[in-house]
Amino acid sequence: MLNQFPLTRWPLLMAAGSLMMLLGAWGFEYIGRYAPCALCYDQRYIHMAVIALGLASGAALIVRPNLGRFAPWALFVIAAILLYSFGFAGWHAGIEYDWWDGPATCTTAGTVSVNTADLFAALDGEIPAVMCDEAAWTLLGISMAGYNALISLGMAGVSIFVGLQGLRK
């Protein structure tokens, strides 16, 4: 199945995978009304980097086919970003499962200074108080951060595998 697409299209496929992850996160936020925490936002930026790099390198490979020899290296850079996403999302999931402490600014143990207007807005439900150590949603005991880690790891593995195949050719 991995050989169905030319090597030069794989950066675009990885960008599409990260775009699907981002659309899923936005769907949970805007349709499902699950407000993201600060670490959730940070994870989105990592996928935005994959999208940008995948689109840029994929477009370059389409416009300039003679750059095809660089496709494996683009995939390795994308894989490195996805491995970072795996680590970051895994760290966040570990915070949600109480395996380790998270940043004091977004966990229930942390102290944050707020002004009275922010406090009243939060009490009125205008500003959701979202903690990084509380999973907003789980499926089969795995949180959204946990799924992000697993999917990012899978995408990184595919990028590395396809990139290595491209180097062998």
Rank of each mutant, 00 (worst) to 15 (best):
E29H: 11
W99T: 02
I31Y: 15
I151F: 12
W91C: 01
A25K: 15
S85A: 15
T116Q: 15
G58I: 07
G102N: 07
L75S: 06
P6G: 04
V63Q: 15
A93P: 00
A122D: 05
M14W: 02
L139C: 04
H92T: 07
C132Q: 05
L167R: 14
Y34I: 06
P11A: 07
L23K: 09
S143G: 00
M131N: 12
A60R: 06
A121C: 04
N3C: 08
G141R: 01
L123C: 07
C40G: 08
N66F: 12
L12N: 06
Y84R: 05
A109C: 13
L153A: 10
T8V: 02
A122L: 02
Q43S: 14
K169P: 02
G24F: 15
L23S: 11
A35D: 07
H92F: 06
G87M: 14
T116G: 12
F76N: 07
I51R: 09
A93H: 10
W26V: 00
V50E: 14
S18A: 15
G32M: 15
E126H: 11
G146C: 06
Y41S: 08
F120A: 04
M20R: 11
R33I: 08
D98V: 08
T105S: 14
I151C: 05
V63M: 15
A35H: 12
A156V: 14
L23A: 14
A56E: 00
A56S: 07
M131E: 08
W10E: 05
F86A: 10
D124M: 09
G157N: 02
G166N: 09
L75P: 00
R64L: 03
A121E: 02
C132G: 09
R9K: 03
G24V: 09
S18W: 11
L139R: 03
W26Y: 13
A129C: 09
W91R: 03
I46W: 09
I51A: 12
T107Q: 10
Q4Y: 06
F28K: 01
H47F: 13
K169L: 06
S85V: 10
G146K: 04
L167F: 13
C40E: 05
F86K: 10
A25P: 14
I62W: 10
L7S: 03
T108H: 14
W137H: 03
D101V: 13
C40P: 04
I81R: 02
I46Y: 13
S57P: 03
N66S: 12
A80I: 12
L164Y: 09
T116Y: 14
C37W: 11
P36F: 12
S85F: 07
S85R: 07
A80K: 02
I127H: 08
Y45R: 14
A93C: 06
G125N: 03
R69T: 04
A122V: 01
V50T: 11
G125P: 06
E29G: 04
S143A: 02
I62E: 15
V112H: 05
Y41I: 05
A89T: 11
T105P: 06
G166F: 13
Y34D: 00
R168T: 08
G27L: 15
G58R: 03
G163K: 01
L2W: 10
A145P: 01
W137L: 15
M20F: 13
S18Q: 06
P128M: 04
V162P: 00
V112A: 03
R33G: 00
M20I: 10
Q43K: 10
M155T: 06
